[in-house]
Amino acid sequence: MTTIDLSEVTSADLEAVSQISREADVDPDDCYQCGKCTAGCPMAHEMDLVPRQIIRSLQLGLYRRVLTAKSPWVCAQCQVCSVRCPQEVRIAELMLAVRHAAKREGLRPVRETDIFDDIFVSNIRSQGRNNEVFLAAFYNLQSGHLVQDVANVPAMVARGMIGPRINHVKDKAAVRRIVDKVLKKGSSGSSDSLDTPSSPSSSVAPSSPSSPGQRDGDAQ
């Protein structure tokens, strides 16, 4: 049995943890550790701290421990945990709030999921819609997984799934203003980059995967 050392928990940690629960609008203390969330979690096999342990760590104020955990980044946001919890603890929201807290501190324990989401959002910002081919191509470039899924491309072309169609909205500026307004509020410190003219090759929002101060760790 492992024991948890609480001697390092500071009042700043406790405050940071309560900020996470405020953002999620969820009180981790409602959890009585039954483990039902974890039993149904489809990604639990990939988590260093399973959902029940994330909640327990939050209850104990173990801010650093949750911040460096991979779990919130491999969470697929499927909502099974939240729906099944007998105490109505919305665990998925806590996972998200932990992820945001980590990102504010320049941490991203799993690089790939973060890169994917950033590219997705910058794709919307520049085109208004998501071109799945651009999405996959830029993901491969920025993640370094260059040949991933390339073997499927000819089959997709043959099925009319990939082509030179133009898939963007007419009023791209309106969509861009929405993205910029929401992300500026987040004070992620990257608001400068939001004003740069966008091209498909510049990943802008909300923090460029190549920007310094971020720790990389492989998902796999």
């Binding site: 990939e46 491999v74 697929a76 499927c78 993901y139 991933q148 998902a219 796999q220």
Partner: peptide, 12 residues
Amino acid sequence: GASHQISAPRSA
């Protein structure tokens, strides 16, 4: 697994 099939294929 949704988009994790691209961003975390081995896990998903």
